[in-house]
């Protein structure tokens, strides 16, 4: 269209360059690796789709993928309802609003590796606050370096602590945007608290919750730093999530080809599931 100002493209250019360096070039490199085999010295052999086949058939991949889905499932099933409950119980106006909001935001401000290290120390059986309390005060045997269940409970708790706030803040934003008239009308219509939640609050929060669920899915499905710092994938392979396994293959064994193929499969799964989530959750809006 002639009426549009073409100068605008000039301002978009830096972003395009950045995206190219950040995403496209590494991506192409990965694609390149995934179809080749190398033994070092920059010598490559054509491998075709063999790596993909191998990865897709490997039990190790299946196990890591299963753990990954379990982890994400637990995260979503805990954090989303918990976030909504906390958001519902927060005050809508007054002095306590900023206090609550800042408190909620605090965990999210801490860097991932610090979170991992913090929880690592926190849970050490002999000197960690939590570990000591559980083992020596309550007498529960708790050591996540030995017990896979303890390790799982710890990484899930840590993630809940770290990221539930995100769901809370988004849900809260959706809640405060509901005009008072809706609550008043519901009171007059004789609606129960559950009906108010089901027919007013939940529908009005839907858009932000969709965003919250998508963000939490993608983040938890790609999580690496915190569990790596906390458990290193152990004990055994019990907390070796997909990302941790991927790094082990790539940097531990320097199997660049399989690692590249695996990361592409990983990427495809993330994309597919995100798309599924999004389509399912926005299905009603299209009508």
């Amino acid at each position: 269209m002639k009426t549009e100002n073409q100068k605008a493209w000039f301002f978009v250019l830096p972003v395009l360059v950045l995206v190219a360096f950040n995403a496209l070039i590494p991506m192409m490199t990965v694609v390149n690796y995934s179809v080749q085999e190398t033994f070092g010295d920059n010598v490559f052999f054509w491998q075709g789709l063999d790596w993909f086949e191998q990865i897709l058939r490997s039990d190790r991949f299946h196990a890591a993928l299963g753990r990954q889905f379990l982890f994400t499932f637990l995260i979503l099933i805990i954090e989303v309802p918990l976030g909504i409950i906390i958001a519902l119980s927060m005050p809508r106006k007054g002095f306590w609003v900023p206090v609550c909001l800042v408190t909620m935001a605090l965990p999210m401000l801490i860097p991932w590796n610090v979170v991992g290290a913090m929880w690592n120390i926190f849970t050490l059986p002999d000197i960690g606050l939590l570990g000591y309390f559980l083992n020596h005060v309550l007498g529960i045997s708790y050591d996540m370096t030995q017990n896979p269940l303890a390790a799982w409970v710890t990484i899930v708790t840590m993630d809940v602590w770290h990221w539930t706030s995100l769901v809370v803040l988004l849900a809260y934003a959706g809640l405060v945007s509901i005009p008072d008239a809706y609550y008043q009308a519901a009171k007059i219509d004789g609606a129960s608290n559950w009906a108010v939640f089901r027919f007013i609050q939940l529908p009005k929060m839907k858009t932000v919750l969709t965003i919250a669920i998508l963000l939490r899915f993608m983040d938890s499905f790609n999580i690496y730093t915190e569990p790596f710092v906390l458990t290193g994938g152990g004990p055994g392979n019990s907390t070796t999530l997909l990302s941790i396994d991927l790094v082990k293959i790539a940097l531990g064994q320097f199997d660049l080809g399989p690692a590249a193929a695996m990361s592409l499969i990983y990427f495809a799964i993330t994309l597919l599931v995100s798309w599924l989530f999004y389509t399912l959750m926005t299905k009603d809006d299209l009508n």
Partner: peptide
């Protein structure tokens, strides 16, 4: 019963 300035309906 009360009817408000902005129509209140249950969207879903």
């Amino acid at each position: 019963a009360q009817v408000f300035q902005f129509p209140v309906i249950y969207d879903t």
